[in-house]
């Protein structure tokens, strides 16, 4: 059934990668959230730690390690899973057009009766499904471990935070796909998207300590995804819309340029 379309075949070709990344996301999420009971029991100590190094802990977003939301924000949502999922999304996004083009596979597909628009959009859709499944793994782990670890975070808040992280990763994956579609170079796609992600991450953490660099956060998907603190406040429509808009506009650029250029050997 997956062999019927460009979309399905692309997912089928990356099923192994998908399973691998899902295991990684699951493991990291389970590991870090699993520490919560012991962190909670030493809550006073952690608060003292934060008081001792306010700048560092503030930069890392560790404002409140004594509450489950604060702890999860500092670990699972603030650092590890967004980075893991972003790396996964960039690697797949770079492969979607540029990687396949460099490998020679794209030439064969485009010699068939399929339009370039169709190839870009279906692989974009496959990337969306891929990242969404990683987000679903993150959500599922927290949903399952929540009662055991006594997290006490409402299901819709967990879903909101998981969705925010998914959108962050998707934004950077889409950037990689777009740069790849425009340039045809996988290395450019990876480098550009990774640069954006690193600047985005630092822009929303360490750069906040420097007043002149504060504007950097507006280039950061991390800012739009995590600053509203979806784990505490639920979905923020405005900020979420920014991420959705980025993911919607980039493929349009990708299609427009990809339709006009030569396919490389």
């Amino acid at each position: 059934m997956l062999l019927g379309s460009v979309f399905g075949k692309f997912l089928r070709d990356h099923l192994r990668a998908l399973v691998g990344w899902m295991i990684a996301v699951t493991a990291v999420t389970a590991l870090y959230s699993g520490f919560w009971p012991s962190i909670r029991d030493t809550g006073d100590l952690m608060d003292a730690y934060i008081d001792a190094m306010p700048q560092l802990t503030d930069a890392l977003g560790w404002t409140d390690l004594a509450s489950p939301e604060g702890y999860l924000n500092a670990t699972v949502f603030g650092l590890l899973t967004p980075i893991l999922m972003t790396v996964a999304a960039i690697s797949l996004g770079a492969r979607a057009i540029a990687g396949d083009e460099e490998d020679g596979g794209l030439e064969l597909v485009l010699a068939h009766p399929v339009s370039r628009t169709r190839v870009v959009l279906q692989r974009f859709a496959a990337l969306a499904v891929f990242v969404a499944l990683l987000g679903a793994a993150l959500f599922a782990v927290l949903l399952l471990l929540g009662p055991i670890l006594e997290l006490g975070v409402a299901v819709e808040r967990l879903a909101a935070a998981s969705a925010a992280v998914t959108l962050i990763a998707f934004a950077y994956g889409t950037a990689a796909l777009t740069v790849g579609a425009v340039t045809g170079r996988r290395s450019f796609a990876i480098a550009a998207a990774a640069l954006l992600a690193v600047v985005g991450y630092l822009g929303n953490s360490f750069a906040l300590q420097v007043e002149e660099l504060e504007w950097l956060r507006f280039l950061s998907a991390f800012y739009y995804g995590l600053d509203p603190d979806p784990l505490t406040n639920g979905v923020d429509a405005g900020y979420t819309l920014v991420l959705v808009a980025v993911a919607a506009v980039l493929p349009v650029i990708a299609v427009a340029v990809f339709q006009r250029r030569d396919i490389m050997v």
Binding site: G4, R12, G104, G105, H112
Partner: peptide
Amino acid sequence: YLPGELTMSSRRPARELLTYLGNL
């Protein structure tokens, strides 16, 4: 069309690739 340089990097079997290309 037979490309001059045919590079195929998938781990999937030839039958799957050919079925897919046929489906296109």
